[in-house]
Computed example of a mutant assay.
Amino acid sequence: MYSEETQSLSDVTYMMKESLDGATAGIKKVFLLQSLIISPSRTQHFTSVSLYLSCEDQSDSTGWRVRRNTDRWGLEDCSSSVWGSQTGSTCTIRSTMIWDTGVYWCESESGEKNHPVNITVHFDVILESPVHPVTEGDTLTLHCLYQHTTPPNLRADFYKDESLIQSQTTEMIISTVSKSHEGFYYCKHPERGESPKSWISVTVFHSESQISVLHILSSVLAVSPYLLVTVVLIFRCCRMRERLENWVGMSGMALNWFRSYLEEVIMIVQWVKGEEDVLGKDNDLPSEER
């Protein structure tokens, strides 16, 4: 008796499920992608020290490997080379050399790659900067380190894109990072020398993929109240039809006429809801007068 209404409800349910599944997949892709973890956590490192790189996330790190591309050795895997040794998803460089400077990343068995990281190995003076992009609004702290002193913090001048931004300080702090703070940073000491340059990037809180996910979720939530009203009206219409046919004995043309009347009522209710959205909630006129 209710095959058409049941089919419509099934179609709507399927569409909502597809939208939610798509949103969930987007969230997983944004938040669960493998990331390269570096210890010590910085992009510049001294020579003749140990360096640890691993592929980790909150779900599973099985099947991921550390790869790199250097000017001297080209493309290499940690597990199949002499420069490092890999245990599980962790790669260890026992004694760094300047030739270890290059691009490093995590790669899965299927070829999926995460965001690459530029690692620089240098002697004497290095800049301590974050490995991954800084989120807009966060605090950025930079240190100038010297290899032959303990502690290694060095009082130096800090530069961005060749312009001096702070002088004779052991650390440089930007309390609220914005997109304008992106650029090449380095530190310089008049006697010890200067560090290599490191690119610091800033990401906006809502990335493109996050906006897409939030848009899907907001669309589903926005249509839910009207979808619920429609489903309830259809259900009541079907119940009314059953009562008229079985209890009152209405059938034939009279039943079809009454069914058409109820369908028009549903359309009017949906139209009124749409008009309320256009006119706004501040309009106090009753719906019958619109």
Rank of each mutant, 00 (worst) to 15 (best):
S61V: 00
S61W: 05
R65M: 07
V66P: 02
V66A: 01
R67C: 06
R67G: 00
R67S: 07
R68V: 02
T70N: 02
D71V: 10
R72F: 10
R72K: 15
G74P: 11
G74K: 02
D77T: 09
S80H: 09
S81Q: 07
V82Q: 12
W83P: 00
Q86R: 14
T87R: 12
T87A: 13
T87F: 07
S89Y: 11
S89I: 03
C91R: 03
R94E: 12
R94Q: 12
W99K: 04
T101A: 02
V103T: 15
Y104K: 12
S108P: 05
E109F: 14
E109D: 13
G111Y: 08
G111V: 06
E112M: 09
N118C: 05
I119M: 12
T120H: 05
D124L: 13
L127V: 03
V131W: 06
V131E: 02
H132E: 11
G137C: 10
G137W: 11
D138Y: 07
D138C: 06
L140K: 06
T141S: 11
C144V: 01
Q147T: 00
H148L: 13
P151Y: 09
R155T: 14
D157Y: 03
F158I: 03
K160P: 00
K160W: 08
D161M: 05
D161N: 15
E162Y: 10
L164R: 11
L164E: 10
Q166F: 03
Q166P: 00
Q166Y: 06
S167I: 00
T169Q: 14
I173N: 08
S175Q: 14
T176W: 03
K179Y: 13
K179H: 12
K179I: 14
H181A: 10
E182V: 00
G183I: 04
F184V: 00
C187D: 08
E191Q: 15
R192S: 04
G193E: 06
E194M: 11
P196R: 08
W199V: 08
V202R: 04
H206T: 04
